[in-house]
Design a protein around this nucleic acid. Structure first.
Lengths: 360, 360
DNA sequence: CTCTGTTAGTGCATCGATTTACTATCGCCA
DNA sequence: TGGCGATAGTAAATCGATGCACTAACAGAG
């Protein structure tokens, strides 16, 4: 019924509520074995379950953490959320999940809600350069872990971030294409106003420079170009649509790229679709590299070459960091924990077709 | 801060806590405009936020509902979860999300946790034939809405279920292949021990019968066949892997199918990969139909013919039903609400190659 | 026999908001 | 002037669990 209280248990066991409470809170040694047995029996017989609201009110503690992701409809975030939940559950925590759609206002609103719920630990998957909109909560004692972003100037001193090494990852991707012989490369992304996108772009250009190429040899397609005036429209909601549009437009240009690096796998799959729309073949005619290595990357036709993020491991790291801060043990200085990316080569990349190679 | 209580607000405004509470709970008419203003100012100035644990303890109410899905790593469930969250949020509710991995024990454990949290409304996405493992909570007053299943004999009288019409959906899929001229069809699924899978299989066979075909003309591949003894191993975790294996095995048989119906899109994408593994072309050599119409269906190469589930609408229905039961208004008789499926024809289906058509 | 220390267990204030039952004040009419 | 009925606002009990401060009982030391 849920109507069973600690008082009824106490009466049934012939002890005081304090004793039942002692039993429940890891102090069973404070009573004689006989007493303990009576308490146990009473609890079992009445089907007693402590009221969490009352407990939380009294102790201020709650074993729930918050997870704010852009959108769980995106398989990348869905997979991350599931792994994160697994990690939390293994430590007795539950997870309250929120989809922000990458909207800073929603991020803040959600964090307000979580705060009001008494939740004091949150993993925020936001690649916004500034977390200023959330700063006040951190000042008030919120344990915050950033995910999919790296430390930025102006961040709270205590903020940790977990992220793949975007620069290296994008570098791996670009080098791979360059080593295959590609010289006209494109970088496809939504708005660049996010930490990981800028970093990936930096890795991309770094690799180009290694090969003596300049920005003149590259094309960049970001949502902003579409001229819609609302670059943020291209978010996780429709990364694939973005990629598809981008590919069509890029391939229609005078000197189309032979290799395309997409900001993530969903976008890359869209790019692949766009390439086919243009009557070209992925791999043979145009190479595509994605980012993330979601399950679908391996299922696509052709299977997608991509930069892998070890999500399960990263989810465990995020939870561990969060917990450390919640428990107040261990160092809590702010930093970025960068995970090493790995290039997974599949069939969406190949040497460029001969006639385009020497065109440069 | 969070340390601001209703007492401090009351003191700052020069009123009693009761008055502040009246103001907060939609009874601002119970005070003079001047008083109300002072209360408002005090709240704003102190940054007061009501303590939800205290409120919940007192009222027994909590604006959180539970959502138990197999795995949010699966884009279908991720998409559903996001839409459901949107619907809940629009009505002032938040969502506690749980991944059951289709494990009845985890389903029950999660529901216990949610119950202990004071949550009294849950949408359970379980296609288990029996919800007996959860019955006791319903008896105690839990508002439960089943999703992705239909009413079964033995269900609690008050249980509503929201589901696509699986029989009709599978029928649409099978008819489509039959009308294209296919005569050797296969049905690929994990364990058949779930409501929607049996229903889809029923629709499949019904369509075959319409065309005068018997079960001899069909192949069924379900996880159980693999002989691992653990059919449940094939769940949402690896629907695509399942499909891939299935396709390979089916195509290696003496009389391979020319058309394959997969239990869902992830599985279908796996089937497509398996077809390519076998050196055949999807569409031209072997037709494939999926189920769900996830975003990726349209991005695949070739784009996947599939039976669409209008997830946003279904999520809204699920929340509406849940709320109706929570608020205790409206009829609460148990039933199944079936949503009409729609066949989306794309390029993964085509007439069978000539040499196989007449083989039958 | 008293004093100290230990064990076993209890009483009660407390967390913060809600809500019922109540009081005080005022207007108005007979 | 007395009394009725609103209106404005308050006092205090309450939700259920916790944990500090306390007591009772008893063993052992001096």
């Amino acid at each position: 019924m849920s109507g069973v209280t600690i008082y009824e248990v106490a009466r049934a066991a012939g002890v005081s509520p304090s004793t039942v409470s002692n039993y429940l809170n890891g102090r069973p040694g404070r009573m004689l074995p006989g007493t303990r047995k009576r308490v146990e029996d009473a609890i079992a017989q009445l089907g007693y379950r402590p009221n969490r609201a009352a407990r939380q009110l009294r102790t201020g503690r709650i074993l729930v953490v918050g997870l704010v992701v852009p959108s769980v409809a995106n398989p990348f975030w869905g997979t991350f959320a599931r792994h994160f939940e697994g990690a939390a559950l293994a430590h007795g925590y539950r997870v309250l999940l929120c989809n922000s759609e990458r909207d800073p206002d929603r991020e803040r609103e959600y964090i307000e809600e979580l705060w009001d719920d008494g939740i004091r630990g949150i993993v925020l998957c936001s690649s916004l350069p500034s977390l200023g909109h959330v700063q006040s909560f951190v000042d008030d004692g919120l344990a915050l872990v950033g995910f999919d972003r790296t430390a930025q100037a102006g961040d709270a001193a205590s903020l940790v971030n977990i992220s793949i090494d975007n620069v290296v990852g994008a570098q791996l991707a670009a080098r791979h294409l360059l080593e295959l012989g590609h010289r006209r490369l494109a970088f496809v992304s939504g708005s660049l106003a996010s930490v990981n996108r800028t970093e990936r772009f930096r890795g991309f250009t770094a690799a180009l420079e290694e090969h003596g190429l300049t920005s003149q040899d590259t094309l960049v397609w970001s949502g902003a170009r579409s001229g819609s005036g609302a670059p943020e429209d291209y978010g996780d909601l429709d990364a694939s649509g973005l990629g598809r549009t981008a590919a069509r437009e890029l391939l229609a240009s005078d000197v189309p790229p032979t290799g395309i690096i997409a900001i993530n796998d969903m976008c890359a799959l869209g790019v692949c679709a766009g390439i086919r729309d243009a009557g070209l073949r992925v791999g043979q005619d145009v190479s595509v590299v994605g980012f993330d290595d979601i399950v679908l990357a391996d299922l696509a036709a052709p299977p997608l070459t991509t930069v892998r993020q070890p999500l399960e491991e990263m989810a465990a790291m995020a939870f561990a960091q969060l917990r450390q801060r919640l428990d107040g043990d261990g160092p809590t200085a702010g930093q970025s924990l960068l995970v090493r990316p790995e290039l997974v080569v599949r069939d969406s990349t190949a040497p460029p077709p001969p006639n385009t190679t020497d065109r440069h």
